[in-house]
């Protein structure tokens, strides 16, 4: 049972805690791989992409990779979209990420540190 928020101060304390938790994650050197899971993305095959990423994470025991989801950002023409956030580089957004491309992103960008320029979307 979560503690209820009873005032703006409560809300801000909650927010600080959430912020710290997020900070801790990135400080630990974790990499976030975010799949855009709006309906557009799903229609364009985002579930297959997500499955491929999770498979790869499991297979390669990539414990420091956090796979999460977000909504649609409105770049339908580029779906499926995957974002990679690492501690050192800022956010990189990839478009048209097929399962094949997803695996490459994990191998080359997340593990190898090399951004796949051909699939980067300018946002």
């Amino acid at each position: 049972m979560k503690k209820k928020i009873r005032s703006l101060e409560d809300l801000n304390r909650f927010r600080e805690k959430a912020f710290e938790a997020k900070q801790r994650q990135t400080h630990l050197g974790n990499v976030q791989v975010i799949v855009s899971l709006g309906s557009c993305g799903i229609a364009a095959g985002a579930f297959d992409t997500l499955k491929a990423i999770q498979q790869q994470v499991d297979d390669d025991h990539l414990n420091e990779v956090i796979v999460s989801q977000t909504g649609c950002i409105g770049l339908c023409g580029h779906e499926p979209i995957v974002e990679v956030i690492t501690a050192d580089t800022s956010k990189v957004t990839y478009g048209h990420v097929t399962p094949e491309v997803a695996r490459r992103i994990l191998r080359e960008h997340v593990l190898g540190g090399k951004v796949l320029e051909a699939f980067v979307v300018e946002v």
Binding site: S39, C40, I42, A43, A44, G45, C76, E79
Partner: peptide, 20 residues
């Protein structure tokens, strides 16, 4: 309209949606 026009043409098979 299924509201995923950004990836049209679109169709549903049961609950699965296919775009582009």
């Amino acid at each position: 309209c299924l509201g995923v026009c950004g990836v049209g043409p679109v169709f549903l098979v049961d609950d699965d949606i296919y775009g582009n």
